[in-house]
Amino acid sequence: MRKFWCGFFIFWPIAAIIYSAVSPQFNWWFPGPSVTELGQRIDNLFYLILIIVTAVFIGTQVALGYCLWRASHNKEERAWFTHGSHNLEVIWSVVPSVILLFLALYQMDVWALYRVQSFFPKEAREAPVAEVTARQFEWRIRYPGLDEHGVPKKLHLKPQPDDLYTVNDLHVPIGRPVMINLRSDDVQHSFFLPHLRIKQDAIPGQIIPIWFKPERPGNFDLACAELCGWGHYKMRAQLIVEREVEFQAYLQKLRADQNYDGHATPSAVAKKDE
């Protein structure tokens, strides 16, 4: 029975490590490498913490296993009572504190870039590409209108006559920082882009800016990550990252569709989309 407990407490850490090691092969891990560089840095922070806790986890498990093993083989030696050791307590208080302090300082620039507006890239901050409004149970998206050269105008906080509207379909250009303004029409939602490692609550009454710089084209999930009602699962939209030309063409198409009067062909540019 003593051997059993030794085996039992050794089995779980080994199982946990094997499980973690094979996870990526079965897609039980991140949904691929991050599409943004900032997301990559967030992953790196995650891995740093993972390495630290893995080391601590293995260390404690080995110590536990060693104690059990030693006790199960030695009937002479008895456990003894102690009031504790001042030195040991200082060590196990100071070492984790130092680690935590290190993490707190080490992640500061990532956090600032991710959340603090004054650290956002200037070009993104000055020209938000779209406004995303979460609503039970969809994402309504508003782009600014296009000027006579087909260049997007400035996005105003209040709707403008030539704004372009779409739903559940967020297009952004690749390779430059883009910012969107997140709002909620009703309850709390959460704007979740797993491939970009972005998750931000949408709060009624607030406009929350989010920026990212996608480095890879593709069609990514946009989901709601805050239980917002019975239709929560319906808030499954897509983020399409495309080349600047395609993005501009998309906006043109949106404009053509939105101005459709039954005579002009809707989306003459639409062929590009197929």
């Binding site: 609503r135 739903v167 559940n168 239709g231 319906k234 499954r236 939209a237």
Partner: peptide, 9 residues
Amino acid sequence: TYMPAFVPM
């Protein structure tokens, strides 16, 4: 209204 959009789901 409460009728949401169902595309692309």
